[in-house]
Write a protein that binds this DNA or RNA. Structure first.
Lengths: 159, 159
DNA sequence: ACAGATTGCTGCGTTGCGCAGTAAAAGTAT
DNA sequence: ATACTTTTACTGCGCAACGCAGCAATCTGT
């Protein structure tokens, strides 16, 4: 039966392939943080800035799941590392906008250059429609993962 | 030109889709660790045990990129949390094998049950051949990421 | 103008981690 | 058989990241 073959494919994806890659993604994050000389959370912060543009410390704290106090320290580290810069918000003088410096952008880009090159090589083995399929999968997976993160954070106790 | 379309696909994958999902994977790891009441590294250890079976503290330390001393503490935490158990190796009395307990397996399974369910729903929107494509991509990505992690760890300074 | 909410920033304690050192067991050479 | 080296896992110690609680500055609504 083809339904069994499909089921085994789905199981292998959810139980093996996706977790298998996820383990390495977390580990890569750790190695990159060490290389950049910042904490793991700081790397996440840089990614958020890269994807969503400048943000306030409070917004960043929510994105990387930190308290505002810890976010202040995180920003201190990133400023000390020369990766970001604090900019006063002219409209609201309480607010401070965090934006990446060119040096920070370059440093992150260099750290991931090797992986990007490898990935480009990998993708050469896929057809155009296959690339579209992979992209579609990644987008949906991102949404589902985001939703699950949100749910788990909201859920108070066990289950 | 179709080569430009393909190039934009590749760029979107390497610069947006893959990092976008990776951010959430790291964040999910953090949330799951909080839920299980252990450190983030401990969750990685549980994944390694789940994928490769029982291992010694030294092996686990290498897999999660920790010193043997820190691995001892990590195992202490996991034992205290009821997730793993120390078993003496009869062949080599120096060695200790770490194996997950049933409770640990169940706890981890429950933590990821929601995401697995969502992912299964997502995969329902893909054809059989598309699932095979996604699986193939994830496997190659896992290998490339592993190679890059290895390289970055081996590389001493900048670059 | 006044009260309350929002935003970001500091002490303090907790905890995870690396480093250095230790003990026990296995391997190896004379 | 004995002595030396290697391997494996486990402890003090210091450092750093994080949460919590509190604070000052600023904005907003009446």
């Amino acid at each position: 039966m083809t339904t069994n073959e499909r089921e085994s494919l789905v199981t292998e994806l959810t139980k093996s392939a996706i977790p298998g890659w996820a383990i390495l993604v977390v580990r890569l994050n750790r190695v990159v943080a060490e290389r950049l000389g910042v904490a793991e959370t700081d790397v996440q912060c840089l990614h958020v800035l890269d994807r969503h543009g400048p943000a306030t410390p409070g917004t960043l704290a929510k994105h990387v799941k930190l308290t505002t106090g810890s976010a202040s320290r995180m920003i201190d580290r990133l400023v000390a590392a020369g990766c970001v810069r604090r900019v006063a918000d002219p409209g609201d003088r309480r607010r401070v906008l965090i934006e990446p410096t060119q040096e920070g952008i370059d440093r992150v880009g260099e750290a991931y250059a090797g992986l990007v090159a490898r990935t480009r090589d990998d993708l050469a083995g896929f057809g155009d429609d296959e690339l579209a399929t992979v992209l579609r999968f990644l987008r949906t997976a991102e949404l589902s993962t985001a939703a699950e993160v949100e749910r788990l954070q909201a859920a108070p106790g066990r289950t």
